[in-house]
Design a protein around this nucleic acid. Structure first.
Length: 423
RNA sequence: GGUGAGGUGGAUGAGUGGCUGAAAUCAACGGUUUGCUAAACCGUCGUACGACCUUAAAGUUGUACCGAGGGUUCGAAUCCCUCCCUCACCGCCA
């Protein structure tokens, strides 16, 4: 949620920024300012009337104490009249307040100055590439065939137990998954992140806090009886750890990491790119989240990108880093870098991480603030990224590392997996 | 699921209708003292949205907030209702 203050101070600039994000309803900005004016007007009305009531009520108490009953009764009538007057004011205030809020939550975050213009993923800017695309041997196969060949993942079985998009990992497939999670977590902890095991279901407030609601309820599984959402990413519970807190400046930066399964309905994406592990409803991911001083968030973003990059390099997979253009960025993000790894058998790039700076967009919703050195309370910046999402990493490891002998794992995971290859 | 007790500021905890936005203690912060540390002493110490004033900061001031939402009352942290949550015991159970 954008800060009202920013919109008020420079509506024109806000509109220009929103246009870069390919946001169409720029009229909302003016509507918000108008609602805000209305709100203020009604609040002044309400405050002054309520103040009169409060004063009169105190006077009644004093008159009663002195035994001046008639005067007290007079005052009571006065108050009754004021209260009648207050009723419609109260309603107007509530109406304008919720109208303002409703509009405010519809505005996406403003893209940072660094965001390239563009409408679709075709306009994203490739920052750099690393690793080498392998030459596959003639018998090479896509990961879903390899998964079958080496008895690693059973997609059909998941169908039976739950439905499509819920793969079952078996034997070395399960172990590989577990090994990678452990390795990723260790990598993060070594970089100063604190590990959390958060709830996998969250309430409405938490889902609102990170920006999933009110917009994307269709993407989350929802337990209607208890009104809990299954998390689409650990970002949601982990960032909400500090919701409604005022931190000390010395607490910052807060660095958190968590492994969790993630649940996504992926409504509307059937039929395309859903083969094997490319797109599933439940998958494992290790996430990193930081809450930082506003002046440092862009340095931290680079730091996080480098951190994820190192992890990818250690897996010896061909990757590239993209800076997302305005039109391809998520609702809440101010600047996002996507990481893609090259799937050698499918001959396409698969997204395995997305690292974003949200500036104050999330923290304004969650009210995560800190007291700065001058004693002023201000919002912290929040950032997060995957390090890493498992399925596509697994897919690429299988595909890219295959030869006639089996699948040769990168050195970094040998000790975690307990072997150097799958065969 | 049942029964009972509760939810007050960073923490503990007082407060059963007006003088309570909230005692006290602790923590935190600033200072004095001190060879250092500790102790002692003094001071500061909620949030949000407004208004006034100001270039701004500061300052003055209004309103709201004692789990959430309603209600009673001239007046609610305090009384009533609903919901949520916590704790204890019982039942069930990984």
């Amino acid at each position: 949620m954008l800060q009202l203050q920013v919109i008020r101070q420079n509506p024109q600039w806000v509109k220009e920024r929103l246009a870069i994000k390919n946001f169409k309803e720029l009229g909302l900005v003016d509507a918000i300012i108008a609602s805000d004016e209305q709100r203020k007007k009604w609040q002044v009305e309400f405050d002054t009337t309520q103040a009169k009531i409060n004063t009169a009520s105190k006077e009644i108490g004093q008159l009663m104490a002195k035994g001046q009953k008639t005067e007290a009764e007079e005052k009571k009538k006065e108050v009754a009249a004021l209260k009648e007057k207050l009723e419609p004011i109260k309603e107007q205030l509530a109406t304008t307040e919720s109208a303002l809020h409703e509009k405010l939550v519809l505005l996406p975050n403003l893209p940072s100055e660094k965001v390239p213009a563009g409408k679709t993923s075709a306009d994203n800017v490739i920052m750099r590439e690393g690793g080498h695309k392998p030459e596959l041997y003639s018998g090479a196969a896509p990961h879903w065939e390899l998964a079958k060949k080496y008895d690693l993942i059973d997609f059909e079985l998941g169908n039976k137990i739950t439905g499509s998009g819920f793969p079952v990992y078996i034997n070395k497939g399960a172990k590989l998954q577990r090994a990678l999670i452990q390795y990723f977590l260790d990598h993060n902890i070594a970089a100063g992140y604190t590990e959390y095991q958060p709830p996998l279901m969250v309430n409405e407030m938490s889902a609102f806090g990170t920006g999933q609601l009110p917009d994307k309820e269709g993407q989350m599984y929802f337990a209607t009886e208890d009104k809990y959402y299954l998390i689409p990413t650990a970002e949601v519970p982990v960032t909400n750890i500090y919701r409604d807190e005022i931190l000390k400046e010395t607490d910052l930066p807060l660095k958190m990491t968590a492994y969790t399964p993630c649940f996504r309905r992926e409504a509307g994406s059937y039929g395309k790119d859903v083969r094997g592990l490319n797109r599933v409803h439940q998958f494992d991911k290790v996430e990193i989240v930081q809450l930082v001083h506003p002046e440092k968030s862009y340095d931290v973003l680079e730091e996080m990108v480098n951190h994820v990059e190192k992890l990818l390099q250690s897996l010896q997979l061909p990757y590239r880093i993209l800076k997302l253009c305005g039109g391809d960025m998520s609702f809440a993000s101010a600047l996002t870098y996507d990481f893609e790894v090259y799937s050698a058998a499918q001959k396409k790039w698969l997204e395995v991480s997305s690292v974003s700076n949200f500036e104050t967009f999330q923290t304004n919703r969650m009210k995560i603030r800190f007291k700065d050195s001058s004693g002023k309370t201000q919002l912290v910046h929040s950032l997060n990224g995957s390090s890493l999402a498992l399925p596509r990493i697994v897919a690429c490891l299988l595909e890219n590392k295959q030869d006639a002998e089996g699948i040769k794992l990168p050195r970094s995971v040998h000790s975690y997996f307990g072997a150097d290859k799958i065969n």
